[in-house]
């Protein structure tokens, strides 16, 4: 319990620092990017004074003291009032995020889980048959694929499977003639459009999990309790899964939870290649249009998600690993 309290305190502190960083960045940058943006904004047409005020508060265009601005900034965050997007003008920032989030959660969420499960299984397998042709082949291939720039592999896949062989669509989250709705036809189109992005993310991320798990597993296989299990003549399968893998997976749980938190940020570069209507694409558009309100809000969402995921990881670690519980009591 003490361990969890301490960790929660650290995470809250982290959250506070990240949100404050988000507050300070546009204010500390030379040349005041926010003011330049607002000037463009005003040139764009009608916009309520209230919306302009919200943006000013978030980006720090005001004559009030920094402290007052900071309080107002927190007030806006608690009311989820992030102002209006510059790029997608009449729409609010929250509206744009609400539209992009489900796409990213579905695509990146599913691929992250799949990648972790598959990578871990392959890692266990490779470590168990260490030095076999299977281990050598799989480990060298994954060493190479894990150095792939995600977006480059995405480009190559699009080229081969969409351009040369017309198996998959080139871009988008669904067929252009459709409008989003809860129908089977639309669902089918969305799934069809997600196969290639999912595949490229899977290929480029699988290697990391596999290599990590293989290393942990090799260390675990050298522990005394595995030697003891062998000496007792326990079945191989039980030693591999119930003894070694069970311990080897622990260090990876935090990494997995963190990557689940990162899901919210989307696979920025991959979504860009596929023009996939998710959070990564939204962040990219926000950045390339200097849409600071949207940028700030997305970054905030990502940080909150990652901190939450870290907290869950800590809870899971305490539940799974009695050493952490006991270590906290004696500490």
């Amino acid at each position: 319990m003490r361990y969890l309290l301490r960790r929660s305190f650290m995470l809250l502190l982290t959250l506070w620092s990240a949100i404050t960083l988000n507050f300070l960045l546009p204010r500390l940058m030379p040349g005041n990017p926010a003011e330049v943006m607002l000037a463009k904004f005003k040139g764009k047409g009608t916009m309520g004074p209230q919306a302009i005020h919200a943006i000013k508060v978030m980006l720090g265009i005001s004559n009030e003291s920094l402290w007052r601005q900071y309080l107002q900034y927190w007030d806006n965050i608690f009311h989820l009032n992030f102002g209006v997007s510059y790029t997608y003008f009449p729409y609010s920032v929250m509206h744009m995020i609400a539209q992009a989030l489900p796409w990213t959660l579905a695509l990146i969420g599913v691929t992250t889980i799949l990648s972790f499960v598959l990578g871990t299984l392959l890692g266990v397998w490779a470590a168990w048959w260490r030095g076999s042709w299977f281990d050598m082949a799989i480990t060298s291939i994954f060493t190479f694929t894990s150095s792939f720039p995600y977006f480059w592999f995405a480009l190559i896949s699009v080229f081969l499977l969409s351009f040369v062989v017309h198996v998959f669509p080139i871009s988008g989250g669904y067929a252009t003639y459709m409008t989003p709705s809860w129908s089977w036809a639309f669902f089918g189109s969305a799934v069809y459009h997600s196969v290639l992005p999912a595949f490229t993310i899977l290929v480029s991320s699988l290697g990391g999990w596999q290599l990590q798990m293989r290393n942990n597993m090799i260390t675990a296989l050298n522990e005394d309790y595995v030697v003891l299990a062998r000496a007792k003549g326990l079945p191989e399968r039980l030693i591999a899964v119930g003894y070694a893998a069970r311990n080897a997976i622990l260090p990876n749980m935090t990494g997995f939870a963190m990557s689940l938190g990162f899901v919210v940020s989307g696979a920025i570069l991959v979504e860009l290649v596929f023009a996939y209507p998710g959070m990564g694409d939204l962040l990219y558009n926000a950045v390339s249009n200097e849409d600071y309100p949207l940028m700030q809000a997305i970054f905030l969402m990502i940080v909150v998600a990652v901190v939450a995921a870290n907290f869950i990881a800590d809870v899971v670690n305490v539940l799974l690993d009695p050493r952490i519980r006991r270590g906290a009591e004696t500490a």
Binding site: L11, T14, A18, L21, L25, M258, G261, F262, S265, I268, L283, Y284, V287, M295, I298, F299, I302, V303, V306, V307, N310
Partner: peptide
């Protein structure tokens, strides 16, 4: 904890 790529981009 702060995700690298989004922070870099920002």
């Amino acid at each position: 904890v702060i995700p690298g790529l989004p922070l870099m981009i920002i």
